[in-house]
């Protein structure tokens, strides 16, 4: 297997991705996932090793473009039903915990 010239995946990178995905990993899990993810990347690197200069990138597996719908309204869901699925509701809206930081 070839690494495609890319430096091997580090434990810190896996820890960073885990934070972004809001996953709490133990030390043992970090070691294990670093090993497994490195194998996955190695596999993908086989493709990276090929000369694909003349190949157009694939945007979608289906050979389609311009799938559009007319700007016409469709029925919405019933609000009571929607809010009934929420853990906490207040004032006809979803209530969520205190937000740390600001919207992106």
């Amino acid at each position: 297997m070839s690494s495609g010239g890319r430096p091997p995946l580090s434990r810190d990178e896996v820890a960073h991705v885990a934070v972004l995905a809001r996953l709490a990993l133990t030390d043992e899990e970090l070691d294990r996932f670093t090993r497994q993810l490195a194998q996955v990347l190695d596999h993908a690197a086989d493709v990276a090793a090929l000369d694909l200069g003349g190949v157009v990138p694939t945007a979608h597996p289906l050979p389609l473009a311009n799938v559009l719908r007319p700007d016409e309204p469709a029925p919405c869901l019933d609000r009571d039903e929607v809010l009934g699925a929420a853990p906490v509701v207040e004032d006809g809206r979803f209530r969520v915990p205190r937000i740390v930081g600001e919207a992106p």
């Binding site: 207040e90 004032d91 809206r93 979803f94 209530r95 969520v96 915990p97 205190r98 937000i99 600001e102």
Partner: peptide, 11 residues
Amino acid sequence: IHSADYALVDY
């Protein structure tokens, strides 16, 4: 924003 207890969301 920084000191709110919680938030309400309208989608």
